[in-house]
Simulated assay, not measured.
Amino acid sequence: MTATTIARAWMVRRADGMVLGFTDHDASLTFEGIRFLPDHGMSARALVQATGLSVDNSEAEGALSDDAITEKDVLAGRWDGAEVRMWEVDWTRVASRRLIFAGSLGEIARSRGAFRAELRGLSEPLNAARGLVFHPRCSARLGDSNCKRILTGATFMTEASIAKVSDGSVLGFTAFPAYGPGWFERGNILVLSGKAEGLHASIKDDVASPGGRREIALWQALGILPDIGDRVRIVAGCDKRAETCRKKFDNFLNFRGFPHIPSEDWIMAPQTGGRRG
């Protein structure tokens, strides 16, 4: 390759199999079964690559467009963790190329019709915590392979139509099934219809009122506000306490916490919490 004929090309593959190709060349390139389109939706900054196991550091940025990377898809998390590969390629002979980056998309930020995504190298998983954490509360995520609680049926999830949207983060319902107050706190909500379909959020507060009225407050407003009448699915939450695991979910056999571990005060000042031995 010569310096005057080098272009960069990058591929992004979502978890659902959708593949997009981009290049900073002024014409499309095709190799490895992928067509790389010029100036189409995304560009990448210069890579900062280190030796050893250090995580490569770079960013990708671009415009949110209807035919490439849409705002709705970004907000719905469809690009989270997408596979990324980048090549330097001789655009006069695409067989002459070298792979300069392989990894995934990390945190995605959006502003004014554009996005910026962190690129994470293949060594990024090595930064994840390993091992067991000794804590009074459960370390499992509700419904995962450690928790083993299957969240199906009307006990742990329901669907309802939105009757009111306040401040972007509070959803009101007028014909809600009978659940106790706070049943859905720390749970999650998924929009099933309308322009916000596919978006999800974590639930902060769940307030029940007489007559089947209910208000659910989200920790953060949905990126695209749902409309009145849109359907949502709401899943119960867990505060990870042993009592909740036993009484609410009947799942204490799979509890992944240590409810009888001594408190920090007991360790630091045993005379205030009881005797040792």
Results as ranks from 00 to 15, higher is better:
residue 64 L to A: 05
residue 94 V to Y: 07
residue 102 A to Q: 12
residue 77 G to D: 04
residue 96 S to T: 09
residue 65 S to A: 14
residue 96 S to I: 12
residue 70 T to Q: 02
residue 74 V to L: 12
residue 75 L to I: 01
residue 109 A to F: 02
residue 97 R to D: 14
residue 94 V to P: 11
residue 66 D to L: 08
residue 86 M to I: 15
residue 64 L to K: 03
residue 89 V to Y: 05
residue 82 A to E: 11
residue 92 T to G: 08
residue 67 D to K: 06
residue 106 G to L: 04
residue 106 G to W: 04
residue 88 E to M: 13
residue 106 G to M: 03
residue 69 I to S: 06
residue 66 D to A: 12
residue 65 S to C: 09
residue 78 R to P: 00
residue 92 T to H: 14
residue 80 D to L: 11
residue 99 L to F: 05
residue 107 E to C: 06
residue 85 R to K: 15
residue 98 R to E: 15
residue 105 L to P: 00
residue 92 T to V: 13
residue 69 I to R: 07
residue 85 R to H: 14
residue 72 K to D: 05
residue 100 I to E: 02
residue 70 T to R: 04
residue 93 R to S: 15
residue 108 I to H: 03
residue 101 F to V: 06
residue 83 E to N: 03
residue 66 D to G: 03
residue 94 V to C: 10
residue 82 A to S: 09
residue 67 D to I: 07
residue 68 A to R: 07
residue 68 A to E: 10
residue 72 K to C: 00
residue 91 W to C: 09
residue 64 L to Y: 01
residue 100 I to T: 03
residue 87 W to T: 11
residue 77 G to C: 04
residue 99 L to R: 12
residue 71 E to Y: 12
residue 71 E to S: 11
residue 75 L to K: 00
residue 98 R to W: 13
residue 64 L to P: 01
residue 91 W to T: 10
residue 72 K to P: 00
residue 103 G to D: 06
residue 92 T to S: 14
residue 92 T to L: 15
residue 86 M to Q: 09
residue 85 R to A: 14
residue 88 E to S: 10
residue 72 K to A: 12
residue 101 F to K: 02
residue 106 G to S: 03
residue 73 D to C: 02
residue 88 E to F: 11
residue 103 G to K: 01
residue 89 V to M: 11
residue 78 R to G: 01
residue 99 L to E: 15
residue 78 R to F: 03
residue 107 E to G: 07
residue 101 F to W: 04
residue 86 M to R: 11
residue 79 W to Q: 08
residue 82 A to Q: 06
residue 98 R to V: 13
residue 84 V to N: 06
residue 73 D to S: 07
residue 67 D to P: 00
residue 91 W to L: 07
residue 95 A to P: 01
residue 98 R to I: 14
residue 92 T to C: 10
residue 96 S to D: 15
residue 107 E to Y: 11
residue 104 S to P: 00
residue 98 R to L: 15
residue 79 W to F: 11
residue 102 A to K: 09
residue 90 D to R: 02
residue 89 V to W: 06
residue 104 S to M: 08
residue 83 E to C: 02
residue 106 G to K: 01
residue 76 A to K: 00
residue 78 R to Y: 04
residue 90 D to I: 05
residue 68 A to Q: 05
residue 94 V to S: 12
